[in-house]
Design a protein around this nucleic acid. Structure first.
Lengths: 340, 340
DNA sequence: AAGGACTGTCGAAGCGCTTCGACGATGCGC
DNA sequence: GCGCATCGTCGAAGCGCTTCGACAGTCCTT
């Protein structure tokens, strides 16, 4: 193992000079710096992580708390994980993945042992135990999603999320302005709500508020993930409201795909017979059998903001508070004026 | 922060006694041990990770090199990651996720800085740069997949994989013994092979050898992931060989699903008109539209073996060599004797 | 009863780094 | 040309832990 003193010897300086050259915390003469850098390259020196953690204040590791749920959508989950890792690496941070069932004890453990500088938490629930843990440990933390019963205070921790309430309004507005007066909604499985994922509530809130304000009829179904459940729910939706001219999807890709197939089977033409809109889509809607107008879930942006918020806290800023991302729509031709 | 000396003070012993009580490397009187354990619980002590790394030899962290490919199957990828994390946790190890493009430099970095004790590598290619890196760094490592051009030597590193060659034989054997004489194969996209993923080659090798030995006709298609490509490839397969009575899937779930739908559209009855067999399935074949007989990919077992091999190497064993898992078949009723 | 082999505990060294205070060298104003 | 900042570098302390050697005390063995 090559250590800082090897570098110091090779460059003919003391180890503290090497350390300062590395950290930039004190001025170093250009010529000295050059010699040190040459020695580092020559010897292929990499600072020892343990020593750095022990002596310095930081570990350059971020924990990612990513609990897996039975009803979760694995590809989306993986995209979040990858985006967090990518952003962290850009800031010279590594990511320790906490993905076993017992997430709370994992955070407690890595925090107590000073293994990580901070934590990014995915899969946030209304009543999220992790909030207490990070607050008690005074651990820099950023939540992807908004904890807290009220859905907007953030429970005193830093969090970032798409503005789902606004997204709900925007989805309705988009269809309303195209002339639709009766809209169906295919939502997430009921287990999501039961688990306390706030974004479903917030989306529904915005949806209903906007619909009420505009006097638009809304009917929501929340199919389970069982085979055929989505198609049946969709049939129900349409058959119960023959005047329905548009459907909003607020669900995962597999559900959307099976409903799209059902739409084809029923011989419906999109958008002439039925307008479709994918709200908060974590997937690419342009590759679907029927490309869909959508509000994309800005997954990369969310992860970037979360990681950077956590790192700002590591640097001492109290970057708390809720950051809401304004939803935008993308056009793929699946929304049009209803016939007649 | 509560340190080992706080615990020592509280228990009325020296810090080395606490350390030995914790590690079990020297005998400690029962009464002393009890007092120390009480103090630890009382103070909620957790050893400092940095200090432990620096003083001890190990970090209790494993790197997981999990490069993401554009054509990869995200859910499968995520299942591997989760399985590795779970197994590692069972051995009191944490997992550092290396998932950015430049995987080789990541391994080099964490190894050089002694951040991790070892590495588990997924997404192994025939000519895998990571082999050189871990060998040069003498880093304990386990590959999930078999590196090396020849497909079975393992290139001098520890690796574990399903015995894909045997799986290929087994798939053919299963269908041959049911009386099929002409079999189609829907394989992975051509980009897999181009990338140098050995398991595709090994599977095909076994497949062809067994077919040749039994005088069975084999036709392979490798559809791209483009929409409709799988269905078209399947049509081609069947139309080019009207005598074909069985199809083997060696591909990801979405491909299987679209072919299964095509099968329904064509009005084929499984298994009366066509027998189906899913080889090395990383997904649950019992939940498909048509449940499929299969050889499951023993993903959890593979990850367990890999993690444990890496940890055995950490403990000093030279647990190198190739571990092949014998494939087994599962029956779901999608294979039967061909008509006539 | 004396010697030897264990047992259980302790003190101290040292892991590789960061950072503080010290200090010679240099440049400035007067 | 003197004192005074400023600059660049150094030595040493200390981060919290593991582990080695030392050493009382205990228990056999002879």
């Amino acid at each position: 193992m090559v250590t800082i003193s090897d570098v110091a010897k090779a460059a003919g300086v003391s180890i503290s000079t090497v350390s300062y050259a590395l950290s930039g915390k004190r001025a170093i003469t250009a010529s000295t710096r050059t010699r040190i850098e040459a020695a580092i390259r020559e010897l292929d020196y990499e600072p020892n992580a343990g020593a750095r953690m022990l002596a310095g204040a930081t570990t350059n590791i971020l924990a990612l708390s990513a609990p897996i749920h039975a009803d979760g959508h694995l590809p989306t989950h993986m995209r979040f994980v990858t985006a967090v890792v990518d952003t962290a690496r850009k800031h010279d941070y590594d990511v320790l993945l906490l993905a076993t069932d017992d997430d709370v004890s994992g955070i407690r453990r890595v925090a107590a042992s000073s293994l990580v500088d901070g934590v990014v938490a995915m899969g946030v629930k209304n009543h999220d135990e992790r909030v207490d843990v990070v607050r008690r440990a005074a651990l820099p933390a950023a939540f992807i999603g908004i904890p807290g019963e009220d859905g907007h205070s953030g429970d005193g921790v830093a969090c970032v999320d798409l503005d789902f309430e606004l997204a709900g309004r925007l989805a309705v507005t988009t269809l309303a302005e195209a002339g639709h007066r009766s809209i169906g909604v295919v939502g997430h499985p009921p287990t999501y709500l039961a688990r306390g994922t706030g974004f479903v509530q917030r989306f529904n809130l915005g949806l209903e508020a906007e619909a009420a304000a505009r006097g638009i009829r809304i009917a929501v179904v929340s199919p389970t993930l069982a085979r055929g459940a989505a198609e049946r729910a969709f049939d129900e939706l349409l058959d119960a409201s023959p005047e329905m001219t548009a459907v909003i999807f607020h669900c995962n890709e597999p559900v959307v795909e099976s409903v799209l197939r059902r739409i084809r089977e029923r011989g419906l033409d999109v958008p002439r017979d039925l307008s479709l809109f994918a709200a908060c889509a974590s997937y690419d809607t342009s590759h679907l059998v029927i490309p869909l107008d959508c509000i994309p879930l800005p997954l990369d942006l969310m992860c970037r903001i979360a990681v950077e918020s956590a790192l700002r806290q590591v640097r001492g800023a109290d970057a708390l508070g809720v950051e809401l991302i304004t939803p935008v729509t993308e056009n793929r031709g699946s929304v049009a004026r209803p016939r007649l």
